[in-house]
């Protein structure tokens, strides 16, 4: 970010806030590295032939990104036309007979690439929220009591390394057995992937929260004791604020894990998201598929990076530790 600011200042003829050597390191080197990567990629991809044709180079992938955007626009256009026709028809019906029964249908088109990104984000946040709601209180309990921590530890150690691919069948069967509703608010596939995401992403938050609470400054605990604070006051005004930096470190790691796990979960659960997009393209096997999957790879990477930045900013908001 600071590099960007520096470049902007240079551009406008001002003095750069960032000294030139730093600017080179912060912006020049990464830019060069990206260019070198793109160059190498396009050279290598030109030499590899598959049964589906050439491996797509940067240009082909960029074109596919454009196609996906165009498809999205076209689909939105069709939806707009549909709604307009429906409105016209309803208006006509009402004009003939003010008491005519009009129906308002929602447009059911194929989800576009952008729809799928939105679904993925919703799923990951649902799973992440679920995980945080469980992990933060549990982590606080583990941090407060050595006994509880000792009791929880084997489960943390055993379940933490389990892959989402192992959780998903279990989750799917459990959800199918228990979530029976004629008019479900959430689709089963959405719930399956969200729960799988939370099962995999709750561990970093749990471990870091427990660490934050157990490593709280002894002086602060002494203050709570000499002020004779009630335990609820101690918890919410001393313990939780003191461990917020580590809790947020955990949340940041959890969201990263969750986003990574989501794609795998969506692929298997057939939840309409980026994972399903990748899977469908893989099954489709057209000459465009490879390029489209590569677009998805970059999308996943960039969104993951942005999520991490947001969490980092939140983390810095609550970090009082160094400013005592």
């Amino acid at each position: 970010m600071s590099a960007l600011v520096g470049i902007l200042r240079l551009w406008r003829g001002g003095t750069p806030v960032v000294p030139l050597p730093d600017l080179w390191r912060l912006a020049g080197v990464p830019l060069l590295a990206i260019l070198a990567f793109l160059f190498a990629w396009s050279r290598v991809s030109a030499t590899v032939e598959t049964s589906l044709g050439q491996i797509p180079g940067p240009v082909a992938v960029w074109r596919q990104a454009g196609n996906l955007w165009a498809e999205h626009q076209a689909e939105r256009g069709r939806a707009a036309v549909f709604y307009e026709r429906q409105a016209q028809r309803n208006a006509r019906l009402r004009a003939d007979n003010p008491r005519a029964a009009v129906t308002n249908l929602t447009y059911t088109g194929k989800p576009t690439y952008l729809d799928q990104i939105v679904t993925s984000l919703k799923t990951v946040f649902a799973g992440f929220l679920l995980a945080s709601l469980a992990a933060v209180p549990l982590g606080i309990l583990c941090g407060l009591s050595k006994t509880i921590n000792a009791g929880m530890n084997p489960f943390i150690q055993i379940f933490r390394p389990v892959s989402p691919l192992a959780w998903l069948p279990i989750v799917t069967m459990m959800v199918s057995a228990t979530y029976v509703s004629a008019d479900p608010i959430f689709q089963k596939s959405f719930i399956n992937s969200a729960i799988t995401v939370s099962l995999c992403s709750l561990w970093p938050t749990l471990i870091n929260t427990a660490l934050g609470v157990s490593s709280i400054d002894r002086d602060l605990m002494n203050v709570a004791r000499v002020l004779r604070l009630k335990w609820t006051t101690t918890l919410f005004k001393v313990i939780v604020p003191a461990s917020l930096p580590l809790i947020f470190t955990g949340l940041r790691l959890s969201l990263g894990v969750g986003w990574m796990v989501l794609i795998a979960a969506e692929m298997l659960a057939q939840n309409p998201g980026l994972g399903k997009f990748v899977w469908d393209e893989f099954q489709n096997g057209s000459s465009d598929s490879l390029g489209r999957i590569m677009v998805a790879v970059f999308t996943i990477g960039i969104i993951g990076f942005l999520l991490d930045r947001v969490m980092l900013a939140l983390h810095q908001l609550v970090d009082f530790g160094s400013r005592r």
């Binding site: 002086d219 602060l220 002494n222 203050v223 005004k237 604020p241 009082f320 530790g321 400013r323 005592r324």
Partner: peptide, 10 residues
């Protein structure tokens, strides 16, 4: 206490 022991978030 010697080291103030104020709560930094308040």
């Amino acid at each position: 206490f010697q080291n103030y022991s104020l709560l930094p978030w308040f």
